[in-house]
Nucleic acid binder design. Sequence first.
DNA 1: TGTACATCAGTGAACGCGCGTTCACTGATGTAC
DNA 2: TGTACATCAGTGAACGCGCGTTCACTGATGTAC
Lengths: 215, 215
Amino acid sequence: MNPAVRFNPPQQSRSQATLERILDAAERVLAQKSFGEATLAEIVEEAGVTVGAFYRRFPDKDALLHHLDDRFFGELYLLADELFDVQRWQGSAVATILRAVTERSAQLYGLRRGLLRSLFLRARTDPRIQQNACRLNDHYLERIRLLLLPRRAEFSHPDPERAISLGFVVMTGALREMILFGEVWPSRAELVGDDLPSELARVYLAYLGAAPGAA
Amino acid sequence: MNPAVRFNPPQQSRSQATLERILDAAERVLAQKSFGEATLAEIVEEAGVTVGAFYRRFPDKDALLHHLDDRFFGELYLLADELFDVQRWQGSAVATILRAVTERSAQLYGLRRGLLRSLFLRARTDPRIQQNACRLNDHYLERIRLLLLPRRAEFSHPDPERAISLGFVVMTGALREMILFGEVWPSRAELVGDDLPSELARVYLAYLGAAPGAA
DNA sequence: TGTACATCAGTGAACGCGCGTTCACTGATGTAC
DNA sequence: TGTACATCAGTGAACGCGCGTTCACTGATGTAC
C-alpha cells in the first residue's frame, strides 16, 4: 500500500491546499510534542479544517506521520547525494569533508527538530518508519564509506572501514543526544556552544586517526 | 510529595512481597515495550495480582515509573562513586580509566535496556524524570571532570575541560544509539561487534588527544 | 451562456473502544483480653 | 490458648474520560447539453 492511500486531487485549488495546510500544521504541532501526544483534533484545528477533511485524505492517523516520513526521508536522500558526492570533494582534505558533514547535519537537526524527534520515537514502534530509517542509515553509511575509504591511507585506525561506520554512528548519536533530546543535560548551552559541529568533526577525525586540519 | 506515596508495609510478608512482584513484573514488561504502551492490566497480570492491589501501593500509573526511576537512579549514583573514585585510579593511565568506564556503561545499558529506554522516552514528557536525569548527568559530569582534569597535561585538546564533558556526552549518546535504540542501524551486529566499549574508549581518548594506551 | 446533474471537499455531532481509576466487598493478619 | 475485633491486603466488576473514527449531511467545483 502506498504512502497515503488516495492521492489524486482533481479540484486542486481546494484539496491540495488543505492537504498542505494539514501537513504544515502537523509539523508545527510536532515541534512542541510527540506524535503520540498530539491529538488529531489539535492538528486539524491548527490547520483550520475539521476531522472529516482529514479523513478524506488519510485512512488513519498513522498515515499522516508516514506521509511526513516519506516526504522528509526523500529530502534526506537528496542531501546524502549532495553531501557525499565524490566529485565535489575531489582533492579536499578529510577534515574539510567531515567539517561540512557535521555542519550540515547539525543544521538539519536544528531546523527539523520536532519532526525528527517524533520520527525517532515512533521508529521503535512503527515497523514502517523503522525500516525507512534503517534503509536511510544504510544509504548514508554506504555513501560515506564510498567517500572516505579511498583515503584510508590517511587514517591510523587499524580498521578504517569500521572506524568510518562507527564514527558516523557516534556522530549521529551525539547530535541526537544534544540537539534532539538535550533537555537532560545540565548547562546545555555551554556544552553545545556555538562550535558543536567543529567539535564533532574533531571527534570523528581523531577517532579515524587523521590529521586535524586547519582550526 | 514522595516517590511513592504511602509506604509502610506492616504485614510485610504479604504487601512487601506483592510490591516487589509488581516492580519486577514492570521491569520485565518494559523489556518489551515502552511505559506508555504497557497497560496496567498487563503489568498487574504479569505480577499475578489485580489492579486493586496495585492502587493500594501507588496513587496512579506514573508513580510506578517514578518508583523504578528513583530506585534505579539510586544505583547509578553509587555506580558513579565507584567508577570515578579518585583513590581507585591513583596512578592509572587515562586509557585504563576510560576503558573501565565504557566497559561498565555498556554492560549497564545492556542489562537494564528496557528500563533505560522507558525512562529516556518518558524524560521528554515527565518533568520529574527529566529533572532526575539532568541531576544525574550533572553528577556524572562533575565526577569525571574531577577525575580527569588533574591529568589535563596529557591532553592535546585546547580546552580539556570542555573536551572531557563533551566526550562524555558523545560516549553516552553512542551507547544510547547502539544499545538502546539500535534497531535503526543496519547490520548492527557488525557495527557494534564485541569490542564496542574499547572502540568508544578510543573515541573518547582520541578526542581528548591522549595517549591510546595498550591494545 | 445558462441549466441540470454528478462528483468531490469539507462539516461536526455522535459513536465506540481502550485503558486508567474507583469502590463495595471478601479474605487475611495481627492485637487485646 | 482461644475468641472478638480492628486493620490492612487484595479482588474484580463497573465507571468514565479521551481520542480516533464514522457517517449523514451541506456546500463547492466541474461537466454535459
